[in-house]
Computed example of a mutant assay.
Amino acid sequence: MGSANEELDGKHGVQSLEVGMSILRAMATGRRSMMLKEIAEAAGMPPSKAHRYLVSLIRSGLVEQDRLTSRYDLGPFALNLGLVALDRIDRIRLGLLAITDLRDETNETVALTVWSDAGPVVVRWERPRRPITVNVVTGTHLSLLRSAGGRVFAAWLPERQTEALLRRELETGRAPAGVATLEDARALLAQVRESGVVVLSGDYFARGVEAAAAPVFNFKNEITMAIAIVGVEGSMDLSMDGETIAALRRTAAALSRRLGATLDSLAMDADIQ
């Protein structure tokens, strides 16, 4: 009997939750803070009923009330839900658009990298319109210290997420020349954070390849992706004051802002007018 009742409840849903959602939808479409009477009218219910739900919504953080004006608005948890949804749904799509535009601007191979349980992984790349290019295989896992995208993640992720992989690269001899200890790696990554971008030529994990990469940050001001420009060694201008690096900085900074990043002191913003 209890099982049948549970199944029936599951099919019908929770009516009180649906009523609460109608209040949130009314507030979201209002596009400004609202008085109780306005919310009740928009949600199609008496003010007394709307008030009871608003009390619970305030307790949950989905709604907040200005004590001076008595107006209600969406609360911090509602904002966080919206930003998390934006981060999960839009970041890859926006990243793909960004690397396509950067490919068109620079006529170089451009790759988009995200973090996985096994480290940085290439999720998409765009080929330039030139006869000799570097092919980047989607799904490739990158070295933390000998790839541009890998260094970006190693520099901006918390060390607790990268230390095991860093130690493995150091112990297996896959670290670049001059980096023999974890302290050496930390010093290298500090330089990356100071410059805001990675330029790697001559010691890339793939022979005859050079690359530059920049971090992309989300609404929490945490690294969420890396954008890399990859080419045949000696074929690109990777000087810090050159047009290629400037375009990379602009693209990464613009995408970070689209994802809600608010850091004002990012080194990658230095060349943006």
Results as ranks from 00 to 15, higher is better:
5 N>H: 13
7 E>H: 10
13 G>R: 09
14 V>E: 13
16 S>P: 01
18 E>H: 15
22 S>C: 12
23 I>E: 12
25 R>T: 15
32 R>Q: 15
33 S>L: 02
37 K>G: 10
48 S>T: 10
55 V>S: 01
58 I>T: 11
58 I>A: 13
62 L>P: 00
64 E>V: 02
68 L>G: 00
68 L>Y: 00
75 G>H: 06
76 P>Q: 10
77 F>I: 12
80 N>G: 01
87 D>L: 08
89 I>K: 09
92 I>H: 10
94 L>K: 15
96 L>D: 14
107 N>K: 05
113 T>V: 14
115 W>D: 00
123 V>A: 04
124 R>N: 13
126 E>M: 13
126 E>K: 12
133 T>L: 08
135 N>H: 05
137 V>R: 09
141 H>W: 02
142 L>V: 00
143 S>H: 03
150 G>H: 04
153 F>I: 11
153 F>T: 12
155 A>Y: 10
156 W>K: 07
160 R>P: 03
162 T>H: 08
167 R>Y: 02
169 E>D: 11
170 L>D: 07
179 V>C: 07
182 L>M: 09
192 V>I: 14
192 V>R: 08
199 V>D: 06
202 G>D: 07
205 F>R: 02
207 R>S: 14
209 V>E: 03
218 N>P: 10
219 F>Y: 15
222 E>T: 09
223 I>W: 03
230 V>R: 07
231 G>L: 09
231 G>N: 04
237 D>I: 12
237 D>V: 11
245 I>D: 08
246 A>E: 05
249 R>K: 11
252 A>M: 04
256 S>V: 07
258 R>L: 03
268 M>C: 04
